[in-house]
Design a protein around this nucleic acid. Structure first.
Length: 586
RNA sequence: GGCGGUAUCGUCUAGGGGACCAGGACGGAGCCCUCUCAAGGCUCAAACACGGGUUCGAAUCCCGUUACCGCUACCA
């Protein structure tokens, strides 16, 4: 496997619901971990570590009501200063902790501009946005453009456009990670100065060789910290020689854990984390360093991102602690997969939100569908407006397992939104397509706006995408009609008979005093009766004459919407077509 | 390999020890409505990964197994 691709910051991923009382396995056995520790604060295992408040916002929050009783039971075991300080089961405490997650929250969406905005990223953004809007906090946007080789302005633009189309508006100025370079470096150097990190002079080639050798031996490779054992003099010497170096974080002994808003307690033994690089030899920061530095600078209170970042989290927590900063809450949402259960990729067809926009999906439907991938308001609610989703949103409804992107359901959802959305709101989405399809000009549409809206109203019910509406709309505009071949075979099989029927219908309709549904229905059904045939034998040939297709809205709605002049003209055209065609055949 | 995460119909999910021979939705099959197609209404098929526990009682709690996913980089 090659690594040329690289990942995409935190633009992907999804989530899960978290249950407070679901203890996670092994929880009890971990040193500092006790339910109460979880309730009070996250523990730090590093040597220096004093406890830091943190767990105060998090999972107990919204679900505090239920866990309360349990918590009360399991309270004991304190020992840590902080645990003792906090009267645990105190309702007031719980109340305050409940508010911290949702009290003026600041969340962010942090994609890397290395491609289009894909549905996974869009959903992560959506969850963050819903959370911010629900709890009246801020939703920030940070472009992680530190990988200059892969970042492009086009990608950044695509992210803006995608979010804007979805209606996910962000607060404050967009933050570009690359512009925080000096702060990143400052923070990294501060860690060196304070003894939390050290310079490593090993070259990438040396490390690769060691890694390869270890792999060959069937062992897993972990940096052996050889440079951490360099004497100060030796370090100075190499520094003065100008030897290139990276900065590595010195991972302390112990265990790093946090109470994930979605997953509950998660713990990583520090021995499994190697001394990771935080500054490259060119002095640019590595992802984890930049993210932590930025999230602190942006005062982020809840980091909600794809669960592919779970294993980055302990490193970041270590960084927060070393930097002496309180932790934000972490919520890791599940990924989105394709129908085959594999990570969503181009193989699965459209994965960019822009693709769905092109395919005639409404943003409201896309947002609704995406929200349901990894989140549920509980019960049977499915079709929801943006405001309803905001009102209903809760981290309790977040899912833990990956969701499969099912285009069929998206289309159904879009059909629902199409039906529910007033024509006047649909009009701006439909009009560009109507115009580009050459059906009418913008002026013509605005001149007949009322009629145009009634046409959209008529067609939207049986449409699943905006394109379906446009496709059906053609016949109602003056342009020439093309008869569907199969429809001709089916409905005009008896050409002479069809000609005869249409002529009768034409005569009848043209003599009508009023062009309304009831009048026409009575007249046409009379024709059927007179001829002793089923009404369908009249309606179907007529439908083909009017629309060129075998399917359309109810025939009287078609006649009314199409109007007297156009309808009669279309019937004349059909009659003419049948005459000419007959001559050709005979 | 190591570490971490996850596991209810094909898919999205409800479910928080008894209300579950597991509910809703998409998709599928069929019926109704009906001038066609949608929409709508109704019906059917379809799931608690497996194995042990705990309990009077487990889809729900615990342990293990299996499977899948993620991370394991001077990418993000």
């Amino acid at each position: 496997m090659c690594w040329s691709g690289g990942r995409e910051a935190e633009g992907g991923g999804l989530l899960n619901r978290y249950r407070v009382e679901k203890p996670y396995r092994g929880f009890e056995s971990l040193p500092l971990r006790s339910r109460e520790a979880r309730a009070c604060a996250r523990l730090r295992d590093k040597g220096t570590g004093a406890w830091r408040r943190l767990g105060d916002r998090g999972r107990l929050t919204e679900t505090a009501a239920r866990p309360l009783s349990q918590r009360r039971r399991q309270a004991p075991v304190p020992l840590s200063r902080s645990a003792q300080t906090r009267a645990l089961p105190d309702p007031d405490y719980l109340a305050s902790s409940m508010s911290s997650l949702t009290d003026s929250p600041r969340v962010r969406f942090a994609p890397s501009p290395t491609g289009y905005l894909h549905v996974g990223g869009a959903r992560t953004a959506l969850f963050n946005w819903l959370f911010a809007r629900k709890f009246h906090g801020q939703f920030l946007l940070r472009i992680e453009d530190t990988d200059k080789a892969r970042s492009t302005d086009d990608s950044t633009r695509a992210i803006f456009e995608g979010l804007t189309w979805l209606g996910l508006d962000w607060d404050e100025e967009v933050v570009y990670q690359a512009q925080g370079l000096e702060r990143h470096q400052h923070d990294a150097h501060a860690l060196v100065d304070r003894g939390f990190a050290y310079r490593c002079f090993c070259t990438a080639a040396e490390l690769d060789a060691q890694r390869t050798a270890a792999t060959a031996r069937g062992e897993s490779f972990r940096y052996d910290r050889r440079c951490d054992r360099l004497s100060p003099d030796r370090v100075q010497q190499r520094l003065s020689t100008g030897d290139p170096f990276v900065v590595r974080f010195r991972v302390p002994n112990g265990t790093t854990s946090w109470d994930d808003v979605v997953h509950g307690p998660i713990a990583f033994p520090n021995k499994d984390i190697e001394d990771f690089v935080i500054l490259r030899s060119d002095a640019t920061p590595i992802y984890n360093m930049a993210v932590v530095s930025d999230d602190i600078a942006m005062a982020i209170t809840l980091v909600m991102r794809g669960d592919d970042h779970i294993s980055n989290t302990p490193k970041q927590i270590l960084l927060y602690d070393a930097l002496g900063h309180a932790l934000p809450q972490f919520a890791h949402v599940p990924m989105i997969h394709g129908l085959d259960g594999k990570k969503l990729s181009k193989r699965h067809g459209a994965t960019a939100v822009a693709d769905y926009r092109k395919e005639g999906i409404l943003p409201s439907a896309m947002v609704n569908f995406l929200a349901l991938l990894g989140w549920s308001p509980g019960g049977d609610r499915e079709v929801m407006s943006r405001d309803e989703m905001i009102a209903l949103f809760s981290v309790d409804g977040l899912q833990k397992k990956a969701a499969v992107f099912d285009t069929k359901k998206l289309e159904w959802m879009n059909g629902q939104h199409l039906s529910l959305t007033p024509a006047a709101e649909l009009e701006p989405r439909v009009t560009p397509d109507v115009i580009s399809a050459g059906l009418a000009t913008a002026d013509e549409l605005s001149e007949r706006r009322e009629w145009y809206l009634s046409l959209i109203e008529l067609l939207k019910v049986r449409a699943r995408t905006v394109h379906d509406i446009v496709r059906q709309a053609g016949p109602y505009f003056p342009g020439p009609l093309t008869y569907d071949d199969e429809a001709i075979v089916k409905q005009w099989k008896d050409r002479a008979g069809s000609h005869d029927v249409l002529a009768a219908v034409r005569k009848c309709l043209s003599e009508l005093a009023r062009w309304d549904s009831a009048t026409m229905e009575e007249a046409l059904r009379t024709i059927a009766e007179t001829r002793g045939v089923a009404a369908g034998k009249i309606f179907q040939p007529l439908r083909l004459a009017l629309t060129g297709m075998t399917v359309s809205p109810g025939i009287f709605d078609v006649l009314v919407t199409m109007g007297r002049d156009l309808s009669l003209r279309r019937i004349d055209d059909a009659i003419h077509f049948l005459e000419v065609d007959q001559h050709l055949l005979t």
